[in-house]
Amino acid sequence: MTANDSGPEFHPPPMSGLLDVEVVCDEAGEAVVVVQGELDRASVPLLAGCLRELLNTGGAGRTVVVNLAGTTFVDVGGMCALSEAAGLARDRGSRLHLAGCSTRLVRLLHLFDGFDMVPSDRT
């Protein structure tokens, strides 16, 4: 995927803690959100704000892929943020896909309903 200027820009707050979020949009409007670091209660607002902005500005039919291959830790706060984003995507007529999930994270995601997971080579 290549970056372009047609998608919304997301600027993280100055103190984003131990989480790094990068958004890459392609020409078709599909967004890939690359997440690296710890997704916990302290860092959830950064990712949640990014996903909310992408889903609110992308219009119906938009696809957002969240690549979690670089996450080192995901707590219940992170799981709830991902679940809320999946619900928001459904409400907006968009799709939220998770990629790069560890085996442990996949097991946890099966406890929540409504996640679509894609192979890591898609990102």
Rank of each mutant, 00 (worst) to 15 (best):
H11N: 11
A31D: 05
E9T: 15
T2P: 01
L19V: 04
G7L: 05
R104M: 05
V21P: 01
M1F: 08
S102N: 08
L88Q: 14
F115C: 06
A3K: 13
V76W: 12
G114K: 06
G114P: 01
G58E: 03
V21R: 02
L98N: 04
L88I: 02
L51T: 06
V44T: 14
A89Q: 08
D116C: 03
S94K: 03
L55C: 01
M79D: 02
G37A: 02
S94A: 14
S120K: 10
N4V: 04
V35W: 11
C80I: 15
V106L: 15
P8W: 06
C25N: 09
E27H: 11
L54F: 06
G78A: 11
C25R: 09
L19K: 00
C80Q: 15
L47T: 06
A85F: 04
A42K: 08
R92P: 00
A86Y: 08
L96V: 05
R62E: 01
A28Y: 11
D116P: 00
P13Y: 05
R95D: 06
L39W: 05
A89F: 09
R107C: 01
N4R: 03
T123C: 15
D75N: 13
G59K: 07
G100A: 03
L19W: 00
A69I: 13
R95Q: 12
E53I: 12
L51P: 01
S16V: 06
M15H: 14
L111P: 00
V32I: 12
S94F: 04
P13I: 10
D121C: 07
S102C: 07
V74M: 00
V44C: 13
R92W: 01
L68S: 05
C25Q: 09
L19D: 01
